[in-house]
Design a protein around this nucleic acid. Structure first.
Length: 281
RNA sequence: GGUCUCGUGGCCGAGCGGUUAGGCAGCGGUCUGCAAAACCGUCUACAGCGGUUCGAAUCCGCUCGAGACCU
């Protein structure tokens, strides 16, 4: 779809898929092959390494730079992909919130050794506002908030303006919404195809790096468990399918929040393309 | 033909007289630096009929169904 659109507009594509950035992961991320890219310039495919992962904030920055250059030669650019947070970072901007790897690691250690409770206490005293609205059972959110609090010595919530930043371009989002059964069928089949294409080998070669955050992802974690003898191959495959289905569902949930997004329910790429193009006219 | 065991929500699975067990799948949602991550909510079923009882998924009988064994 993205390639078809890019051809139509004679332009380039930016991927906003947070797993296709990495050159080490190909089969399991269903990255478009060179043939599939069909001569269209793709940014953020194989552009980074799992050893230096790209965060949403960095993505915002790097993507904006690319867009600035590319808009000199193109009126329309295609952004494609699945990572809602990254899409929002680029389209709406993230508030300028500090980040410190060491402090985060320290917090992770505290969480692993002492549990969430002390962290919750700290959060409650240092940022009661945020404490009142976060999901108190979600360690990731709690740790991030405390990371910021410890860096800046002020409440995490004080950094949030939640206002869309001005961008030197306009954008329109389209969501492809296939019937759930069809979606799931395609996901299941896609997993089988990945396996035929050598996913097992790809994952096996990444075993040394299995603890990297960038590999904490569907298609890899399950097979790491298999290689580590925790589950059978059959179980791993079923889990990959299930987790992919769940992820797809969460993507839909994410995009549903966006009132301006246009949804297409057409069943074929050709029809989806027609719908999108007619909306643009 | 006989004896025995068993029939719980889409699936698995506890309960064995008086709260919605639970898990998985599915569905819905949260989301501002690990996001294909992390997390939350939700589905009220006991094969059917009759009986005992204040009260039955839990006890009794019959019917239907599944399985094991015997002849």
């Amino acid at each position: 779809m993205a390639v078809a659109l890019a051809k139509k507009f004679n332009t380039v594509i930016l991927s906003a898929d947070s797993r296709q950035f990495y050159k080490e992961t190909c089969i399991g991320t269903a990255k478009p092959s060179i043939e599939e890219q069909a001569g269209i310039k793709h940014y953020f495919i194989d552009s980074h390494s799992i050893h230096q992962p790209l965060t949403s904030a960095q993505f915002e920055k790097e993507a904006l730079e690319i867009l600035e250059t590319e808009f000199e030669n193109h009126n329309t650019i295609i952004l494609v992909g699945g990572s809602g947070l990254f899409i929002d970072a680029l389209c709406h901007g993230l508030d300028d919130v500090p980040h410190d790897e060491n402090i985060k690691n320290q917090l992770n250690i505290e969480f692993e050794t002492q549990g969430l409770s002390p962290l919750l206490d700290e959060l409650m005293t240092k940022d009661p506002l945020f404490y009142a609205k976060v999901d108190l059972k979600n360690p990731v959110r709690i740790i991030r908030a405390l990371e910021v609090i410890r860096i800046a010595n002020k409440p995490f919530s004080s950094f949030h303006a939640f206002q869309s930043k001005k961008r030197p371009f306009e954008f329109q989002k389209f969501v492809i919404d296939l019937p759930r059964e069809m979606l799931y069928e395609r996901i299941n089949k896609r997993v089988d195809i990945m396996l035929e294409n050598g996913l097992l080998k790809e994952v096996e070669e990444l075993l040394d790096w299995q603890n990297l955050p960038a590999l904490n992802t569907v298609g890899y974690s399950e097979l790491f468990d298999y290689f580590n003898g925790k589950i059978t191959l059959e179980e791993a495959i079923e889990l990959i399918k299930r987790n992919s289905r769940r992820y797809a569902k969460r993507q839909l949930t994410w995009f549903r929040r966006d009132e301006k997004a246009i949804w297409t329910q057409a069943l074929t790429t050709e029809n989806q393309l027609q719908e999108i193009l007619s909306t643009l006219k």
